[in-house]
């Protein structure tokens, strides 16, 4: 399972970074989205994949019985998904405003602040 996920993460990172290097801002934003998915899956995989039970401590016990799945990576991913969703929404609105204002989706033409 790790091997498959590793390949998936690799593909997500590669396509994400490739799209981010394009001049088109829309493609760039899609690249950002793919990259953050890659990062989320990376946390998921690096946190350890185990076929454990849900991490719920039975009543009266101090620790859960047997092998349990680590809940923390999922909590981290959930937080990261929410954050990247907000960022993505902002990036899209920013792109829309820029497009209305400057009438271009080409990064190369956004150079007035670099000079």
């Amino acid at each position: 399972m790790e091997a498959i996920l590793a390949v998936v993460i690799g593909v997500l990172y590669a396509t994400g970074l490739y799209l981010m290097m394009r001049r088109n801002i829309a493609k760039f934003i899609i690249g950002l989205a793919l990259l953050s998915h890659g990062a989320n899956l990376l946390i998921f995989t690096a946190g350890g994949l185990s076929r454990g039970k849900a991490p719920i401590i039975p009543e009266g016990a101090e620790a859960p019985a047997g092998l349990i799945a680590d809940p923390l990576p999922q909590a981290l991913i959930l937080t990261a998904i929410v954050i990247s969703f907000a960022l993505l929404a902002f990036a899209l609105v920013l792109f829309l405003r820029t497009h209305q204002e400057i009438r271009t989706d080409d990064m190369e033409r956004l150079r007035s602040t670099d000079r």
């Binding site: 981010m20 990259l35 953050s36 990062a39 990376l42 946390i43 990576p73 990261a80 990036a91 820029t98």
Partner: peptide
């Protein structure tokens, strides 16, 4: 224009940070 560049690079930095944390 400034915001697009700022957002882009900081987004990238966050993704790398997250990967490192993971």
């Amino acid at each position: 224009e400034g915001a697009i560049k700022y957002v882009a690079l900081n987004f990238l930095s966050s993704a790398l940070f997250l990967a490192g944390v993971g």
